[in-house]
């Protein structure tokens, strides 16, 4: 078994795929904790579509797709955070419009793009095995950058999400810290979407943090569990996909979601015990 693993990961494309899975998956799993706690999961669903639009536009304009993904992500976050109290359409409505527009226009741009079909379509379906060394480096730096930002500004990012009104009364610039969180989110989605597609990005964003939140009520335990689950899902999904000749991205995405099914009984048992006590 060990020899098989060594042989499997001796291939450069597997190493790159694993690096993107581990760094990008771990990063999105971590950021997903805040996506769940802030109750903005719908935003997490729409953003990959807008990032895909950015990638497709970049391919059409023959510029770096990661740059397009980043611009798409940041533009999407800015657009979706603008509709406020004055808008008669609720925020969820705008997110739905963005989701539909992002996915449909991206397909049109793909059709217009001079790039080979397979190259562009991977942003939607994912082609983790087509990952390059540069993609892995992007994922690594996105994860490191986010880790540094959160290490430095943890309390402000948490406090502004937990109680934005109180934060404002303390003179904290809530929009600035929200923007920083969303910048990290946009970067994470950009690097994962560029190689692994929207399905894997969204699965990593919602699956591992859901497992952690269902299991624990300690912030530290939730964060650590979410990251570990994301990393393990990337590794196990990629390994299984290689052994059974399955598509890599969907295998990793499924591996990120399967633990939810496993923890639901644990959660139910705990709830029953709590009620009895």
């Amino acid at each position: 078994m060990f020899d098989t693993l060594i042989e499997m990961y001796s291939f450069a494309f597997m190493q790159h795929a694993l690096a993107v899975g581990v760094f990008g998956g771990g990063l999105l799993a971590f950021l997903g904790v805040f996506v769940h706690l802030r109750r903005i999961v719908f935003l997490g669903a729409a953003l990959p579509q807008i990032v895909a639009l950015g990638i497709a536009a970049a391919m059409l304009a023959s510029i770096n797709p990661v740059l397009g993904a980043l611009i798409g992500g940041i533009a999407g976050i800015l657009l979706l955070s603008v509709p406020g109290k004055k808008s008669y359409l609720p925020t969820s409505g705008w997110i739905g419009v963005a989701y539909a527009a992002g996915s449909s226009i991206a397909v049109i741009l793909v059709a217009l793009s001079p790039s080979p079909d397979g190259t562009v379509l991977r942003f939607f379906t994912g082609d983790i095995l087509g990952t390059t060394r540069l993609d892995a480096i992007y994922a690594f730096w996105a994860a490191i950058g986010t880790a540094i930002i959160f290490r430095l500004f943890w309390s402000r990012i948490v406090l502004t999400g937990f109680d934005p009104v109180m934060s404002r009364t303390l003179g904290i610039r809530v929009h600035l810290w929200n923007a920083l969180l969303f910048l990290c989110l946009g970067s994470g989605l950009a690097v994962v979407m560029n190689t692994a597609g929207g399905m894997l990005a969204f699965s990593m964003l919602v699956g591992p943090p859901a497992v952690a939140i269902l299991l624990f009520r300690s912030f530290r335990a939730i964060v650590i569990t979410a990251i570990l689950t994301g990393v393990l899902a990337a590794f196990s999904g990629l390994t299984i996909s290689f052994i059974h000749d399955l598509p890599g991205g969907p295998s990793m995405a499924t591996a990120a979601l399967v633990p939810i099914i496993l923890v639901i009984p644990i959660k139910l048992i705990r709830t029953l015990k709590y009620r009895r006590s």
Partner: peptide
């Protein structure tokens, strides 16, 4: 929002730290 997994001491600590 009670979804935030914060202990009472964390809430106080966080406010002070921020």
């Amino acid at each position: 929002d009670p979804i935030w997994p914060m202990r009472v001491r964390d809430v106080l600590h966080l406010t002070l730290c921020s």
